[in-house]
Simulated assay, not measured.
Amino acid sequence: MDQLRAMEIFVEVARLRSFSEAGRRLGLTRAMVSKHILQLEDRLQARLLHRSTREVSLTDAGQAYLAPCTATVEQAREAARVVAHAGAELAGPLRIQAPSSFGSEWLAGAVARFNLLHPQLSPMLYLDDALLDPIEHGFDLTIRVGGIPDVHALAMRPLAPCKGVLCASPDYLARHGVPQTPEDLHGHRCLHFSHLTDGTAWHFSKGEERRTVRVQAAFTANNGLVLQHAAQQGLGIVYNTTFLAWRALMEGSLVPVLADWELPLNHLSALYPASRQPSPKVRALIDHLVAEFQPDGQPVPPWDRPLRRLPAASA
């Protein structure tokens, strides 16, 4: 007896409530469908279906068996698809969603290089800072900086650490002074990213010490690049990310503020539906992004490497 085949037939009969219709869908005679079901019931020592001349219905045992049986059949089909595509050229659409600043600064180039390796793919990159539901919007892969919405529905693979940094222009600090403690931020113009999980509460740590400051946002935006441009113009102190600020910090148009205090560490993550194995093209893209954002296998992304010896602002 081919138990997996019998399980597949049972799932189809349960779905269609008909031996004949299930046989037509599967290319089998009604008699062969019935034979497989009887063999499955004999193996399980349980009656799965009520038969009558008018209809087929599930017994209590059949109802209990249907969900795990369906899951097993789907897993077997997915495994077959993975094997079938293992050596095939990656092709077709690939729908990717990411935050706008990270998407434009780092992801776009990485996806372009991936596409050069696999020219039969057609990536579609959707950039939006809103926390969109990847399943509802039909994305194959979502890149997220923190803010994982539903760990049960989504599988996650970390791509790189994502550090926060406070920074301001030298001109602003010359005019308003350099804060020495987190509480000093109350006397400064703070530029706030509206999608921070805790709102205007900025959290700091130094060793075992923890502090939280709820700032008065002088300027708010839902895009990190907008806030960075404002900070470079001398508007205030911005809560930024190193993947966005690194070049301005290296060039000196921005300098770190309160660098001896750490901001909460987030992670850049790749999300995909947990209900199925990632397709070969999604799995290949994730592997490519890990290689791009953790070069040499080291958990220090390329945007953080130049910042290791950067001096902080001083009074």
Rank of each mutant, 00 (worst) to 15 (best):
P273D: 06
A80C: 10
S253C: 09
S100G: 12
Q233D: 13
R113Q: 09
H36S: 01
F193I: 04
Q277P: 10
P119T: 08
P256S: 05
E89G: 14
R157Q: 09
R5P: 13
A245T: 03
G199I: 03
A91T: 06
T29Q: 05
I237N: 00
C190P: 07
A201P: 02
H118V: 04
H192W: 12
E78L: 11
K35T: 11
N266F: 14
G234L: 04
K281G: 08
Q216A: 15
I135C: 14
K206R: 13
G164T: 02
E78Y: 09
L66C: 05
H229F: 13
A218C: 13
Y172D: 00
R308G: 11
L116S: 15
E12N: 07
H195P: 09
P301W: 09
A313H: 06
V290G: 05
P280A: 07
A313C: 11
H50K: 09
G187C: 06
Q39V: 00
G207W: 03
L4W: 05
W202I: 15
L26P: 00
G234H: 01
G234N: 01
M7G: 07
H188M: 07
G224N: 01
H195I: 15
P149F: 00
A76R: 00
D150K: 05
F219V: 09
R51Q: 10
W106S: 00
L107N: 01
F219K: 02
Q97L: 14
T242L: 15
A174L: 06
R113I: 08
R211L: 10
S205E: 11
L265I: 12
A160F: 08
A64G: 08
V226S: 11
E208K: 12
D296K: 12
H229M: 13
T142E: 06
P273K: 08
D287G: 09
R214G: 14
T70N: 12
F19H: 08
Y239F: 15
F219T: 06
D296Y: 12
Y272C: 05
R247V: 15
M156G: 03
L225I: 12
L141K: 00
Q277L: 14
G297N: 07
S194Y: 08
P182V: 10
L289M: 04
D198K: 08
M32C: 14
P119H: 10
P256M: 06
A218T: 07
T142N: 05
L310S: 03
L4T: 04
V226T: 14
Q233K: 14
E183C: 13
N222K: 11
A217F: 05
A312L: 07
Q180A: 15
D140V: 09
T181V: 07
L235M: 12
E74L: 13
A160Y: 01
A248H: 00
A61V: 09
L227G: 03
A274Q: 01
A174E: 02
V226P: 04
L131C: 11
N223M: 13
A221E: 04
P68A: 07
T142G: 11
R81N: 15
V111T: 03
A168K: 02
L166R: 02
E136R: 11
P299I: 11
R5W: 15
S18M: 02
V11E: 00
R276N: 05
